[in-house]
Amino acid sequence: MTPVELSRTVLHAVRRAVDAGELSVAVPTRAVVAPPGPGGCGDYATSIALQLARPAGQPPLKVAEVLRPHLLGADGITDVVLTGPGFLNISLDRAASGAGLVGEILRRGERYGYADGPDGRVVQLHCPHDLRAVVVADAAARLLRSQGALVRVTAEGVEPAWTSVLGVTVDAVGRAPAELPVNVRPVPAPESADPMSLGRDAGRWALLHPAPHDRPRADDQHLVQRESNPLFRVRYAHARARAATRNAADLGFTADPGPVPVTGSDTGTPNGTATVTAPLADAAPQLLAALADHPRVLAAAADHRAPDRLARHLVTVADAALPFLPTVLPRGGEKPSAAHRARLALAEAVGAVLAGGLDLLGIDAPDHL
């Protein structure tokens, strides 16, 4: 079960409770699910009970108690625990949810996490005559459009080189009316820094990766091809994922999401025989969690006009993927198995998420490094 499917399942639970006369509320159009916070448990948590408490005229905990049995009856959910004032903490069938997540990513490709269509929002972004502000506004507009918003970007000034070198675009240049104040104003880059000397990809990353209140560092460290450079790790993980697909084709097999039999080398048994089943990879729960969190990160980065959230998330995905990617292909005299096909599917999902995320930041994702 993917986060999107789980959100729909939560709404269906609300609908069933309403139809049964257990709750008297209007069924909301959206149920937010996210990794559990402090004190939570399971795979995901939702605050839908807190959202419905006031219109239902009941305490949040009571609403959560009403919804719990309806969630427990849903396919793919193994447990629901109530914590705090009324949070529903949901545990999933990991094998089924992992396979479903990877299948959903492969189906959506680089548009995984995008809205299904326009949502009716019209957003105006206006920034000062400042290079970092214009780059942040450009990336924020890409994120907002991915979430269904119609966006217009204006700036009080733009230099032609900013467009030719860093690829930024705005819809209009000049002072905006008094009723449209500047609403994108990150801390500018130091006057001594020259992000454009880094080129489009590294220059944009240098300005987008730090939080808006942090002063960006635009030096040659963004160009080095080593693990100390977060941009390199993200692009390297993407290139390794794409290489896995090419190498698998040479070996005559393709991706197929599904559960992976864990071998003795994974479980510690001496004979190398399969003993248990794990979702998609031998030790990749943090990778699956990072991929599952991608739609929420895109929505939050868009809502807060904060491309840095997406940049840091891509680093998290890459850091979780790099130890996993060497396990994808058969080793030595191994023949490709269902486990290898499932691992390849997870690798391809990593490549899609990293490529799509970098594209939203306006950064290239090369297949070779």
Rank of each mutant, 00 (worst) to 15 (best):
P190R: 13
P323E: 13
S192Y: 00
G37K: 09
D266Q: 05
P261T: 04
P259I: 01
L180V: 13
H129Y: 01
L131D: 03
G98A: 07
A56Y: 04
V173C: 10
L143P: 00
S197Q: 04
F253I: 01
V260F: 08
P160E: 00
G272K: 07
R242N: 02
L310I: 00
G264K: 10
G40F: 13
G264C: 04
V123H: 12
S24I: 03
K62M: 04
P60T: 10
P85L: 14
N89Y: 11
I48S: 12
A141Q: 01
D19N: 03
G272S: 13
R343H: 04
L131K: 03
H222N: 10
Q286L: 14
Q124Y: 02
V187Y: 11
T254C: 11
A149R: 02
A20D: 12
G109V: 02
R215D: 04
E104K: 06
T267N: 03
A133L: 03
G42C: 15
L322G: 11
H12F: 12
V102R: 02
G84H: 08
M1A: 10
R233P: 00
V182H: 11
L150H: 10
D138I: 02
V25H: 15
T263W: 07
V165Q: 03
G333H: 10
A96D: 06
T316S: 04
G203M: 08
R226H: 11
P59L: 11
P195H: 04
S228M: 09
V10F: 14
E22D: 09
V80C: 09
R185Q: 13
A248V: 09
P279C: 13
P59G: 13
D219G: 01
G199K: 14
S164T: 09
G332H: 15
A140H: 03
P69E: 10
A189P: 00
L71M: 11
E104V: 01
A301N: 00
T273D: 06
T29Q: 15
V187L: 13
R16P: 01
R68P: 07
P336T: 03
R94W: 07
G203D: 08
D75L: 02
C127Y: 05
Y114S: 07
V122D: 06
L344N: 11
S265D: 15
A301F: 00
Y236E: 08
